[in-house]
Amino acid sequence: MSFITQVFTLAVFAVFVNNFVLSKFLGLCPYIGVSKKIDSALGMGMAVIFVMTMASTFTWLIQEYLLLPYHLEYLQTIAFILTIASLVQFVEMVIQKTAPALYKSLGVFLPLITTNCAVLGVSILNIQEGYNFLGAILNGLFSGTGFTLVLLLMAGLRERLEKSEVPEAMKGMPIAFVIAGCMALAFLGFSGLNF
């Protein structure tokens, strides 16, 4: 398999087949919480893509060059959380200084992502799946893209729902959950894909 094909396969699997929200059920909190408006959903999605890619990069390095050589794999979770939390904090500072406009639109979401299970999830799955360095980075990038995609789809649907006639008892969260379930079912169809 050529390199391009490999990347393509990785992308399709991360975005559609093993979508973090709809087939792994990670990061459900922002999926429901930040999907009321397309603008904020996009902001959150971009922040997640960024943090997931960075987290994949650094946690892979930590695992490979720190935990494995000293046989400290059992410290994986705490070491990764430490890394992700400091990373997010650092990124927040840098963005606040260098790009205030971006900070304004992303700022609220960055601290939210710090303890997001999807970010920790992608880091740990990278190790479990045995990706190499490049594979881990790309997996982080594409997983974030998959998250952003479903977040945007959800936000679009919910913006339309605001204007449509929904029975009183189903307004707000109940209909959002029903839609989330329908989307998960739809994404189940991708699991038949084979390369």
């Binding site: 930590i62 720190l66 935990l67 000293y70 400290l72 410290l75 705490i78 070491a79 430490l82 890394t83 400091s86 904090q89 650092f90 500072m93 840098v94 606040q96 200084k97 260098t98 205030p100």
Partner: peptide, 25 residues
């Protein structure tokens, strides 16, 4: 384990401290 995790924490802490001074708004 203690040394490695401690060093990691210290490193991150120092890094953030430096960053907060350097990128102070």
């Amino acid at each position: 384990a203690i040394i490695i995790l401690g060093a990691l924490g210290l490193l991150y802490g120092l890094g953030l401290a430096v960053a907060s001074k350097k990128f102070h708004v």
